[in-house]
Amino acid sequence: MSPGPTRRGLLAAAIAVAPGLFLVAEAAPRAPGTPASARTRWGLLIDVTRCDAGCTACVDACRQEQGWGGAASDVPWIRKIEATERQTNRSVSLPVMCQHCAEPPCVEVCPTGASLRRADGIVLVDRHRCIGCRYCVMACPFDARFFVDAEVHDQRPYTPRGKGTAEGCTLCVHRLDTGRLPACVEACGGAGGAMLFGDLLDPASEISQALRARASTALRAELGLASAIRYQGL
């Protein structure tokens, strides 16, 4: 065997979080100058039974990485919610962010093409084209698209943000494109490990294997939006 990469991804980092459950960084860095590929679809499996109600590691990491929060306007790219089953009173805690739908309503309603779905399935806002109409904010069934209504200063160099434009979780494209895990996934791995990230189109990826083996669901599954974010144990 040659010492070269045996398959795409080369499993840059594997953090054991429980017997049989691994958090695997499969985001191999793309060669500079190449576009995102439709042969990849990034996705996330969140095990809510492992998500602690008091833990906000993913939210804190996202805020720190992307630079939102702190201003007067409330734009929680990711938030923790409590969901309670009415008949049984079973309560679970889970993070909610852009679900990176295969059929994103935000893209459908956008009048300028600013809301877009990248080839690898990541749903983004191209702020160069955003006119701040807020259609996407209203269309999103997950309350995961936000409008920035105040001037922003000291943005992260890799995450431009500005007044008058819509925004939401980018699945940390800037990190994925250089082979790193999203900030929330990385933080969750160090705080309990409820998140499994990977390529949904690679049948050999950890996440594909987990999705085949375990029951999971999409939020608002009845809408048929084919989210890239799946939840287990809801």
């Binding site: 793309r30 500079p32 576009p35 995102a36 990248r118 983004l124 191209d126 160069h128 494209v173 494109d177």
Partner: peptide
């Protein structure tokens, strides 16, 4: 470059606005 980067993910080292800045 802004459209290529934002919409297609084509990142060219040295071509980003942060490099200019």
């Amino acid at each position: 470059d802004r459209s290529a980067a934002a919409r297609e993910g084509i990142r060219r080292p040295g071509h980003g606005l942060d490099d200019c800045i």
